[in-house]
């Protein structure tokens, strides 16, 4: 019995150390504009990594490489051990059911109600047909983000914060194992930003996801990060916990923290 418990603990530890996303020395250019020069990043299971950096440094490009929206010019991106660049269409589709992506704007389908937006991945990706099951999942995830009252509203009737919540709900409804957030609090007031950051944390705990959060919002980073990496001119310049980096002597690193501390 004692051995069995020990093995379970070991398994848990191994699982926790499992690298789910492995970005290895990638670079990416658009024409003559080199956006990523040399990026390497490992995301472990259950971990929240926040990528900080000024606008136009290639943060979004990095996470778009993870889901195969963009292909790096050099280097590899492995998700659950498989190279994304070598995946065929079906493998890529399968990968995308395991990796959720929250866009900066929420990217809600504006010709559909909130309910239809949430049903879309359930019926098209998970191929669910049972009406009761679909309704249950939609209502459960909308309740989780506090938007149950807006279920039949059109995206144009929602505020910026509500759109982000609905976008998060639509991504979470397929229960992905990895979440990629592209500037989830940009354009929101400080109170709503804090609410969204806390919601990200709550959803991570509830659905046990591993996340990469792209942001330049220090409050969001403080709330959500297990580990922070700082990006500048297409490469990472510092890495550590929020509190470690806060004490850094590096001028560039300090410039991020000075605004909030």
């Amino acid at each position: 019995m004692e051995t069995a418990t020990k093995h379970t603990e070991e398994n848990k530890q191994t699982l926790k150390n499992e690298v789910v996303v492995d970005i290895d020395h990638i670079s990416k250019s658009f024409g003559t504009n080199e956006v990523l020069t040399d990026i390497s990043l490992k995301l472990k299971r259950g971990e929240n990594v926040v990528v900080l950096g000024k606008s136009g440094q290639g943060k979004s490009v990095t996470i778009q490489c993870i889901v195969g929206l963009l292909t790096p010019d050099k280097g590899t991106v492995k998700v659950f051990g498989d190279d994304v660049a070598e995946m065929d269409a079906d493998e890529l589709k399968e990968l995308r059911t395991m990796v959720g992506f929250l866009f900066q704007s929420g990217a809600l389908y504006d010709s559909m109600t909130v309910r239809d937006n949430l049903e879309f991945p359930l019926t098209r990706v998970l191929k669910l047909t049972d009406r009761a099951e679909i309704d249950k999942r939609v209502e459960e995830v909308l309740d989780g983000v506090g938007l149950l009252d807006a279920i039949d509203k059109m995206p144009s009737d929602l505020s910026g914060g509500m759109r982000k919540r609905a976008g998060l709900a639509r991504t979470m409804i397929v229960r992905p194992e990895i979440m990629l957030y592209d500037e989830p609090t940009t354009g929101l007031d400080p109170i709503t930003s804090r609410e969204i950051s806390e919601l990200i944390l709550n959803m991570q705990k509830k659905y046990k996801t591993s996340s990469i959060i792209i942001t330049h919002d220090m409050e969001c980073a403080k709330i959500t990060a297990d580990r922070v990496v700082i990006m500048n001119e297409g490469t990472y310049i510092a890495e550590g916990s929020f509190d470690e980096l806060k004490k850094s002597e590096d001028t560039l690193v300090r410039s991020f923290f000075n605004e909030t501390t």
Partner: peptide, 21 residues
Amino acid sequence: SMKVTEQIDAMEVSGANPLQY
């Protein structure tokens, strides 16, 4: 406008098929 507002990308990364839809 769906492209500009990233709706087509969102459809693609969700695993759905935007070409078919």
